[in-house]
């Protein structure tokens, strides 16, 4: 599954784009988050993290497939 990491999540995962293997079966965003948190524990510390699937905001219940593109969107405050 293709993961795009914005803002601080890019600093945590180390790159804008990465491939993340959640197996062949569809999973919920909640499960995907848990998988990502296990691989990148610092993500768990973010108090707000929005997720988009195929360029649309998603919820914890949204189901993602291996061919989907998931974006990690943390808030940013700079100005």
């Amino acid at each position: 599954m293709k993961i795009i990491s914005f803002g601080i999540t890019k600093d945590i995962t180390g790159s804008l784009l990465l491939d993340f293997n959640m197996g062949e079966n569809p999973v919920s965003i909640a499960d995907l988050k848990e998988g990502l948190f296990n691989k990148y524990p610092k993500l768990r510390g973010l108090s707000t993290l929005s997720i988009a699937v195929n360029n649309k905001y998603a919820t914890n219940e949204t189901i993602v497939h291996n061919q989907d593109e998931v974006a990690l969107i943390p808030p940013v405050s700079g100005g």
Partner: peptide
């Protein structure tokens, strides 16, 4: 967030 943000600023 219910907490002070842990996102660094500029």
């Amino acid at each position: 967030p219910t907490m002070p943000s842990n996102i660094p600023n500029c």
